[in-house]
């Protein structure tokens, strides 16, 4: 990427993400952990795919593969450039909210004032107006996740890889943030791969839900969610889908 766009463009068109039969094993001293066993997954441009599975099913590994942080042992993987939103917010404690959000712009060569000017309206839009110069330690958990999400967005890549973005939040904030993310993605469509262990989150946010088994991670089911947005978690169809996912995970409903 030579020049960051002044505003992250809605780059919904492109290739999307295509993962086919990917295996990945981590070899340590005298031990090998198979994280992924023949995982296939596809996200069309602009589609929101949620990946749900128990802890340790290789979800994070899958995102690292998509982001090009690690290579697959076998199988094929093609993806548009992807930005990672890590599980922990990983904001830099010495930077203000605005400078954290603008970090990708600075890396792409924008001067500080320019980067800030680009990020400022986004902070305002994300309900962070007035907190531009607050350090991460002074922000609430929900605010930090929003800054972290904005940082991923300002990286200007067509694919967003979200790693359990709301797992560390309390239940109330999490519900708020899920609604917030759905609205943001409505106005800023991206190809999204969001991994979570929260079944409800997967159903409420995803166009498609990919259910993975425990280690070694395998895709056990794929469900299309053809429900209009915004979705209510009490909607009978949402509840029915949630039960279906739980069943696929082997959890008795």
């Amino acid at each position: 990427m030579i020049q960051a766009p002044a505003q992250p463009a809605a780059e919904a068109q492109g290739f999307g993400v295509r993962v086919e039969g990917v295996c990945k094993t981590f070899r340590g001293r005298g031990s090998a952990v198979q994280a992924l066993e023949g995982v296939s997954l596809r996200a069309s441009p602009g589609e929101i795919v949620t990946v749900v599975g128990p802890s340790g099913c290789g979800k994070t590994t899958l995102l690292e593969l998509i982001c090009g942080l690690t290579g697959a042992d076998s199988g094929t993987l093609r993806s548009d450039p992807a930005a990672l939103m890590p599980q922990r917010d990983l904001l830099l404690p010495w930077l203000s909210a605005i400078d954290n959000a603008a970090l990708p712009l600075r890396i792409h060569g924008l001067a500080r004032d320019q980067a800030r000017a680009t990020a400022a309206p986004w902070l305002e839009r994300f309900g962070l107006g007035g907190f531009e110069h607050a350090r991460p330690a002074q922000l609430s958990g929900g605010m930090r996740q929003r800054v972290s999400f904005l940082r991923s967005l300002l990286a200007g890549k067509p694919v967003l890889a979200l790693d359990e973005p709301f797992a560390a939040l309390d239940a109330i904030t999490r519900a708020e943030m899920q609604g917030w993310l759905a609205r943001v993605l409505e106005s800023e469509p991206r190809t999204v791969v969001l991994v979570t262990h929260d079944v409800e989150e997967a159903v409420v946010l995803g166009d498609r839900v990919v259910v993975m088994s425990a280690r070694p991670g395998r895709v056990v089911q794929e469900l299309h969610v053809k429900l209009p947005r915004p979705r209510r978690r009490t909607d009978p169809e949402v509840v029915a889908l949630r039960e279906a996912v739980l069943q696929a995970l082997g959890v008795a409903a």
């Binding site: 942080l69 992807a82 930005a83 990672l84 970090l103 890396i107």
Partner: peptide, 18 residues
């Protein structure tokens, strides 16, 4: 330094010096 932070910098296309 948190290795996750270094990974994040890689996904942001940061050079070694950055």
């Amino acid at each position: 330094v948190d290795p996750e932070l270094l990974k994040l910098m890689r996904t942001l296309d940061a050079t070694r010096m950055q």
